[in-house]
Design a protein around this nucleic acid. Structure first.
Length: 885
RNA sequence: AGGCGCGUAGCUCAGGGGGAGAGCACUUGCUUGACGCGCAAGGGGUCAGGAGUUCAAAUCUCCUCGCGCCUACCA
């Protein structure tokens, strides 16, 4: 028997290895490009090559994989392209750190040599996360693996850059940008993270040029005063209006600072006088432009004071300079005061250094027109964002978007395809590397040193991975993708930008749906982070509990719009479910030596079989509907309940007598149906837990298709709705449960066989008698008698189910008092229920306004409760009278 | 400052106008011919608080309180 091969508990390790290899060799996940099959395509969020799998990836991959596998089952030609992202700054940082350990810098190596080193690093370590994706069971097509810096994607990047430049949507200019002095590059607004720090707010005195006194400005960054080129006050401000047009003198440097009027200045804040440093503050930069102010750069790209800062400060670090300035001002009695002040300061999202606003020549994408189109695509419904409330966030960001700084002063990335002719200063932007200047034919061309923001290439991912700018078959078939699955934290970084680029270059949205899933947090709901030490490593989960248990946990917890609080206990809990499936299969396979010859669903007979069939039909549509609507947790819960509490708890128990019985016809029928149910359960569960289902599947006798991932979703079976069987089954379960309840609550040892008497008539009586064996077996009874004129002996346990009175003679087994107490408890429950229903039915408003069905339902309910109550009360009286004997 | 979301059983959460649900945890009993990662039976909730709409509110509206997040600003 097959069961002999199966260990008692499910052992994931070997199983997972085996099937990963099988799927890979089989190219199970390479689409057939069959024109008759509908395409289904998912855009994978490409992880960084520096990264390792974390909880967010694990959830993200699990959900995408469920969708892919499910749609394969639905007959779609599915494409899920895997890939990684070159992560410019992060990767360069990693390699530079490695170099530093050798005591070298990238400058020592030179650009070309350094990039070679990075490629080497990438070959060696960059694939780590790909293996981890694979271990999660992700059914990606490995034959189409892409990388943002590979040849094809680099071509796409160039094409996009050049086109946008030609369309006037990319420009170069001197602006204030976010500068990281550690990474030594510009960053986009999104790459700056703000966090609150305690600092000071300093009040500085600037003497007035005319000698009539001084004005006082407030600042958190005294060192920037050296770059001040004006002081602003609000023209509405009575206190200072007279100053407008006068000049203040900058201490140390004696620069003449015009006092200008601008409504931007908040009268309430600080002193009401605002020092203006156009070179080192974004708001001041704007004011400077409006008022035509001079830009004086006093901090350089290393965070050191420049010569403009004056001899005594030149060369100092910005922090040192702050201290020194404050000291000097104090000496000169120009520091009027200092207060503690908490304010938020921008930090680099890669290295956490304090960001320096810095004026420099950079490349920008003019986002306005692109953002408008990206917004329209959603508002017109071409792309749907789910859950829907994220739509608003998406709009808000696009409505307030600023131009996107895309140049980075690093080496690892797509080099900007712009050259300057050293002879005539012509700027050349070109798809191919030019050899001569088109204007002066000079051959001394120098390429721009900068590379592009990594997100610039990620923004093209939905079409660049499919072969664009070529018009490939993949592109024809699979663009736009069906869905993008991601967490909200890259909604702006990535999703919005893909929308902008997709709509602009493909004239079509990049994906139909955007499903925004949860963030995985720790048990307390805190973000997982290494510094907090609350990280759960998914790889550890995979090793300890197996991929399926882990995946099922994530799926069961992934309800729409709520974050997941993850703990190891939960994974352990769901491992029990995987093991339960395993054992149900182990049991089933014991009885399934061969496949049914031909399964004819129209000839299903027997209560248990009809019932489970009926349930299965419901489950099939529930699970499909849940997955179509991204209700992953519903799909998981539905299967959990069904497999455990219908299939295992009842169905398997109910059919045991048939499986072990002598009636070979019944036995065969039971086996056939069991085979059918088990195999459909495996198919339904497969998208969520691919490995264990595939392993069991492969052990089913006589299967044609070894690869479960290619087996279609079970069709709706005509003629298999058996609502009557469902009702009957419920009745049977209630009877059995009632007897078990009496036994259990009165502490009757399971070894003691009880009798059951049932006062009932008509169909119910016939039904119960027909299934007498099942009742005896499952309720632990030695005998049963049903009839209209049942006259129970004194001293019975009792219950009422659907109007039938159940009696369990207890004389000599248990004392009557316990049963009386038990009955009293039942009765008070009934009283409570009756009270609620009664109130409704006594309310004329209810009777006049409620829909007829609701009223009938309530009336029926009241009748049922009343009947049950009467019967139990009668019994209670009898017991009491016996007790008095 | 603006926006979004969440307060339901001890914990984690489903549900979303007409009988308070699940999983885990808990209690009790159990070598029941797959499973103790198991079986059976239980206990446990003024659905944050208040007001309103309604015959009927956990569910819809408003307010209050508490928690979380996002965006922008912060001299």
């Amino acid at each position: 028997m097959a069961q002999r091969d199966l260990p008692k508990g499910y052992e994931p390790m070997e199983v997972e290895k085996k099937w990963l290899k099988f799927w890979n060799e089989n190219q199970s996940f390479t689409p057939a490009l069959d024109p008759d099959r509908e395409p289904y395509c998912i855009v994978i969020p490409p992880p960084n090559i520096t990264g390792t799998l974390h909880m967010g990836h694990a959830l993200n991959l699990t959900l995408q994989d469920i969708l892919c596998r499910f749609h394969r089952q639905q007959g779609c030609d599915v494409l899920w392209v895997p890939g990684t992202d070159h992560a410019g700054i992060a990767t360069q940082n990693v390699v530079e750190k490695a170099l530093a350990a050798e005591g070298r810098t990238r400058q020592d190596l030179g650009r070309e040599e350094f990039i070679k080193r990075v490629w080497q690093w990438k070959e060696e370590y960059g694939g780590k996360i790909l293996n981890q994706i694979s271990r999660m069971g992700a059914s990606v097509d490995w034959t189409r693996l892409r990388f943002t810096l590979d040849e094809g994607l680099s071509r796409a990047v160039r094409e996009v850059f050049v086109q946008l430049y030609e369309q006037g949507l990319i420009y170069q200019g001197d602006y204030i940008i976010n500068w990281c002095i550690r990474c030594h590059t510009a960053l986009s607004d999104l790459e700056v993270e703000y966090s609150e720090i305690s600092g000071g707010l300093y009040h500085l005195r600037y003497p007035l040029e005319d000698g009539s006194g001084h004005l006082v400005v407030a600042t958190t960054r005294p060192e920037t005063m050296l770059g001040d080129t004006a002081v602003a006050v609000n023209p509405e401000d009575e206190r200072y209006r007279y100053l407008i047009g006068k000049f203040a003198l900058l201490p140390f440097l004696n620069r003449r600072l015009p006092v200008i009027g601008d409504e931007y200045v908040d009268k309430e804040f600080g002193t009401g006088c605002l020092k203006i440093t156009p070179a080192h503050d974004p708001n001041d930069f704007e004011l400077g432009r409006v008022h035509g102010l001079e830009i004086v750069q006093v901090i350089d790209d290393q965070g050191r004071m420049t010569a403009e800062a004056g001899e005594q400060f030149q060369g100092l670090d910005r922090q040192e300079c702050r201290t020194k300035i404050l000291n000097e001002l104090k000496k000169l009695d120009l520091l009027e005061g200092a207060e503690d002040y908490r304010h938020s300061v921008g930090h680099c999202y890669r290295c956490s250094s304090v960001i320096e606003p810095y004026v420099s020549r950079q490349w920008f994408v003019k986002t306005g027109p692109l953002a408008q189109k990206a917004r329209d695509a959603v508002s017109r419904g071409h792309t749907r964002i789910l859950p829907e409330h994220w739509t608003r966030t998406y709009y808000e960001w696009l409505d307030n978007i600023r131009d996107w700084c895309i140049s980075r002063q690093i080496w690892w990335g797509h080099r900007i395809p712009a050259w300057t002719c050293l002879d005539c200063c012509e700027l050349i932007v070109s798809r191919e590397d030019p050899s001569t200047c088109p204007k002066c034919q000079g051959s001394q061309l120098e390429q721009d040193q900068d590379v592009l923001d990594t997100w610039f290439s990620s923004a093209l991912w939905p079409f660049s991975t499919l072969g664009w700018p070529e018009r490939t078959r993949d592109l024809e078939k699979f663009y736009p993708a069906s869905v993008l699955v991601t967490a909200f934290d890259i909604l702006f970084f990535w999703v919005a930008r893909m929308m902008m680029m997709g709509v602009h270059f493909m004239d079509q949205v990049p994906f139909r749906h955007v499903y925004i899933h949860a963030l995985v947090r720790d048990v307390q709901g805190q973000k997982m982070s290494k510094s907090k030490g609350n990280v759960i490593d998914p790889l550890v989960m995979l090793d300890k509990y197996g991929t399926d248990a882990f995946r099922f946990t994530l799926t069961a917890l992934a309800s729409m719009g709520r974050d997941i609080k993850m703990s190891e206990d939960r994974v352990e809990g769901y491992r029990h479910f995987i093991n339960k499936i395993w054992n149900a299969a182990r049991f089933s396979l014991m009885h399934l030596e061969q496949a049914p010859e031909k399964f004819d669903s129209s000839r299903v007979e027997g209560l248990a079989h009809k019932w489970i069939m009926h349930r299965m039909e419901e489950i099939k549509s529930q699970v499909a509907e849940a997955l179509e609507n991204y209700r992953f947790n519903d799909a998981a819960q539905t299967m959990y309940q069904f497999v455990w509490h219908s299939f295992c708890d009842w169905y398997l128990e109910l059919i045991k007598p048939e499986l072990y019985g002598d009636d070979s016809r019944l036995r065969e029928k039971a086996r056939d149906n069991l085979y059918q149910m088990l195999s459909e359960i495996l198919i339904l569960l497969h998208p969520m837990i691919p490995f264990v289902t595939q392993e069991i599947w492969s052990r089913l006798p006589g299967i044609n298709e070894q690869d479960l991932s290619r087996v279609p979703y079970p069709q709706k079976r005509p003629g298999c709705d058996f609502p009557e069987a469902a009702r009957d089954m419920e009745f049977l379960q209630q009877v059995i449960t009632a007897v078990r309840g009496i036994r259990s609550e009165l502490n009757i040892a399971p070894g003691i066989r009880l009798e059951l008497l049932i006062r009932t008539e008509g169909r119910d009586r016939a039904f119960l008698e027909k299934h007498q064996d099942l009742i005896l077996g499952l309720a632990g009874l030695s005998g049963m008698q049903a009839g209209e004129d049942i006259d129970p002996p004194g001293g019975c346990g009792a219950a009422v189910v659907k109007g039938c009175e159940l009696f369990v003679p207890l004389r000599g087994v248990v004392d009557i008092q316990s049963e009386l107490a038990r009955l009293q408890k039942e009765l008070s429950k009934l009283d409570k229920d009756l009270n609620i229903v009664g109130k409704k039915l006594d309310n004329p408003g209810f009777l006049n306004n409620a829909p007829r069905e609701v009223i009938t339902k309530e009336q029926a309910k009241a009748g049922r409760i009343r009947e049950e109550k009467e019967k139990l009360e009668a019994l209670q009286k009898r017991l009491e009278s016996i007790e008095q004997d």
